[in-house]
Design a protein around this nucleic acid. Structure first.
Lengths: 253, 253
DNA sequence: CGGCAAATTGAAGTATTTCAACGTCGGTGG
DNA sequence: CCACCGACGTTGAAATACTTCAATTTGCCG
C-alpha cells in the first residue's frame, strides 16, 4: 500500500517549487491508496503524516459518542490535510471514494519547513484558502431553509470542486454533480433530517431547478434559479457559473 | 490613532520568540484604536496590514448585496487577522466593541516571514487553530433546532473565549456571558430570525437553563442541561466547563 | 429469490418563519 | 425638560416548514 512516489509533479503548487526543495519532498513522499470507506486518519490520534489528496474524495467528519457522524468537509485532488507542528486532529478522515494520497512523514517535513520559507509559504496559503472554504460553509449553513442550504451546497460544490471531474462535469449547458456522500451524511452536513433532504430535493426537481438522475447524481438545470434559492449570499462568483455552463466536455480548470 | 507599540510583549506567543526576531516585529508594530462600530478592514480591499487584537472584540462579517450582514466569527484578544502572501480578504472586520489592535504592515512582515521559520511556525499554528474554530462553528450550525444552536453557541463562547473577561466572567458557580452582537446579527449567525432567537432564549430562561439579565447579558445557570440541549456534539471539553464554573472572580486562563 | 440498507413517501405533531403590533431605551430637537 | 423618533428587542397569531414515526419502495448483494 505504501509506494514510493513516482512523480509528485502532477501537483502544480509543488511543481512550482525550486529544484532542491522539490527533490527533498520527493524523497519524503509516499503514495498510499485507500478503498472507499477506509479510515485514513483516526480522530484524536496523533497522525504521523501530512498528506495531499492525489485522486478521489475524502470525507472529514466527527463521530459523536452516540455513533452519528457529522461531516464537516470534503477533500478533493490537491487538498492538504494534517497538522504540522501541532497535536492530533480532532476530526477523522475517511475515503469517500477509492482514492490515492501523497503522504509525507511529519517529522522530516517539519524539519524541511524549518529551513524552507518557500515551503512555508505554500502551507500558509493553503491554510488561508482552507479557512475561506470553511467560512463559506458557515454562510451556507446559516441559511434558515433546507432548500436554500441545498441550493447553496450545489453552488458551493461548483465553486470549490470544479477542478474535479469526479464531482462535476457538464452536459450541454447544464452541470452534472456527483454527490459523494450518503443522504444521511448530507443531512447531517446541512443540519436537517434525511427525509427533509429527500423532500427538498424532489421539490426542487418538480420545480425544474434540478434533475435527479440517480440518488447520488443530479443535474443542475437552472443555475440562476438555484442561485436565487440559495439566497442573496453571493457564495460563488457569478462569472464562474457562466464559464462552467459553457465548458463542453468536462468542468473547466 | 497610529502609535508606536509600547510593549507587544503582552502577547505570549510573541514574547516567546527569540530576541532579534521580537525586536524586528517590535519595529514594525503599530497600535491602532477603533471605536465600536468602526470598520477595520473593508471587504475585498487589499489590506496593507496584518493585525493582532490587543483588546476588545472584532466582528468578521460578509455584507450581502441587499445590505444584510452575515457574521461568521468573533475575534478577541490575541486573535490574528489578515492574509500574508495572499490577495484581499473576502470578509469585513468591524469593531464590535471599542478596541485596540497591533498592526503590522504587510510587506515587511512578509519579508520577515521569508527569513524566519520561527515566525512562520507561529502563523501556521495560528491558522490551524483558526480552522478548528471554524469547523466547530460548522458543527454548531448543523444542529437542526434553534434552541440547540443557541445552547451550542453559549458553550462555544465558553470554549473559545474563556480567556476574555469582556465576554465571560463567573458569578458563584455560574458563568456570565456578554453577547457582543445584536439579536439580528446573532440570528444571522445562527441561521434563524431574530424573533426565533428571542423566543428560544426566553424559553430557555423559563426552563431555568439561563437567566437573561439584559438582552446582551445572560447567565448560564445549568451548564449540564445546556450541554445536553446542544446535542451529543461534545463541542467543548467537559473538564473545561467544570473548571470554568469553579473559578471565582474571572473566567480562568 | 430473499434480505438488507438506503432512499423515498405519507401523515401527524412540532418548530420556525412571517407579518404585525407593542414596549423600551437613548438621542435629538423643540 | 419633555415630546418625538428610530433602532432594537419582545410578543402574538396564522401560515409554513421541518421533524418524527411509520410504512413503502428501490437497488444491491449473497
Amino acid at each position: 500500500m505504501w509506494n514510493k512516489a513516482q512523480a509528485l509533479t502532477d501537483r502544480p503548487e509543488i511543481a512550482a517549487l525550486s529544484g532542491p526543495l522539490r527533490q527533498d519532498l520527493q524523497a519524503l513522499c509516499r503514495v498510499a491508496t485507500y478503498a472507499a470507506g477506509q479510515t485514513i486518519v483516526e480522530v484524536d490520534t496523533p497522525s504521523p503524516i501530512v498528506g495531499i489528496v492525489r485522486q478521489g474524495i475524502l470525507r472529514m467528519q466527527k463521530t459523536h459518542p452516540d455513533g452519528r457522524q457529522q461531516v464537516v468537509g470534503l477533500l478533493i485532488e490537491g487538498d492538504m490535510f494534517g497538522r504540522v507542528f501541532d497535536g492530533p486532529f480532532h476530526f477523522a478522515l475517511e475515503a469517500a471514494t477509492d482514492c490515492e494520497i501523497y503522504a509525507f512523514p511529519k517529522a522530516p517535513l517539519e524539519a524541511l519547513l524549518q529551513r524552507s520559507p518557500e515551503l512555508n509559504r505554500v502551507f500558509l496559503l493553503n491554510l488561508l484558502h482552507e479557512l475561506d472554504r470553511a467560512r463559506d460553509w458557515m454562510i451556507l449553513l446559516a441559511n434558515p431553509r433546507v432548500r436554500g442550504r441545498l441550493a447553496g451546497f450545489f453552488l458551493l460544490l461548483c465553486a470549490q470542486y470544479h477542478a474535479d471531474d469526479q464531482v462535476l462535469s457538464t452536459v450541454d449547458r447544464a452541470i452534472r454533480v456527483r454527490i459523494p456522500i450518503s443522504r444521511l451524511d448530507l443531512a447531517n452536513l446541512l443540519g436537517a433530517r434525511p427525509e427533509s433532504i429527500s423532500r427538498a430535493l424532489h421539490a426542487m426537481a418538480d420545480d425544474g431547478l434540478i434533475k435527479i438522475v440517480r440518488p447520488d447524481l443530479i443535474v443542475m438545470s437552472r443555475l440562476d434559479a438555484l442561485s436565487e434559492e440559495a439566497g442573496e449570499t453571493n457564495l460563488i462568483d457569478p462569472g464562474l457559473l457562466r464559464r462552467l455552463a459553457r465548458t463542453p466536455r468536462r468542468a473547466c480548470d
